[in-house]
Computed example of a mutant assay.
Amino acid sequence: MPVKKTPEHSKRFSLVKKYYDRGLWSKARVHKAVECKWVTADEYKEITGEEYVKAE
C-alpha cells in the first residue's frame, strides 16, 4: 500500500518510509536521513517506532 505524503511530512518522508518498510534501509540509515535533513526526528519515530537520539 503506497504511503501518502501529507502536508506535515518532509519531502522525502514517503521514500524513506518505503525503503525502511521493505527492509532496504536499517534504523541507522533512517537515522542518517535525519542528520541529512531528509526527514525530521518526529518522522524518524513515526517510521521506526523509536525515539530519535542525536548521535554524539
Rank of each mutant, 00 (worst) to 15 (best):
W25Y: 13
R22Q: 15
K45I: 04
A55W: 09
P2I: 09
A55I: 10
W25G: 01
T48S: 03
E43F: 11
R12W: 03
S14G: 13
L24E: 13
K27A: 09
E50N: 15
K5M: 03
S26F: 10
A41C: 08
Y20V: 02
D21F: 02
V3T: 14
K18E: 14
V30H: 06
E46H: 05
D42K: 14
Y19T: 00
E46A: 12
V39I: 15
A33N: 08
H31E: 14
V53Q: 14
V53Y: 10
S14N: 01
V39P: 09
V34S: 03
G49M: 09
Y20F: 15
C36E: 12
A55D: 12
Y44M: 09
C36F: 06
E56W: 08
V3S: 11
Y52M: 11
H9T: 05
C36Q: 13
K11G: 02
V53D: 00
K45T: 02
E56R: 10
K54A: 09
E56K: 12
Y44N: 11
K27D: 13
H9Q: 08
V16A: 07
C36D: 10
K27W: 05
E50W: 09
E51L: 07
V39H: 08
D21N: 10
L15I: 07
D42E: 15
K37S: 11
K32R: 15
R22K: 15
L24K: 10
F13H: 06
W38E: 11
K5E: 05
V3E: 07
A41G: 12
P7C: 05
Y52N: 13
E46Y: 06
T48K: 01
Y19H: 13
E46P: 05
S26C: 10
R22V: 03
W25M: 08
E35I: 00
K4T: 12
K32D: 11
E50D: 15
T40W: 12
E50F: 09
K45D: 02
D21Q: 07
Y44K: 12
T40G: 15
I47D: 08
A28V: 14
T6P: 03
E35A: 08
K5C: 00
I47P: 12
K5L: 07
E8N: 01
K18H: 09
K5R: 08
K27P: 07
K32H: 09
V3L: 10
K18D: 10
T40K: 15
D42N: 14
V34D: 04
V39N: 06
S26L: 13
Y20E: 06
F13I: 04
D42C: 04
S14W: 02
K27G: 02
K18I: 04
L24A: 05
K27L: 11
W38T: 00
K4V: 13
K54G: 04
E35H: 02
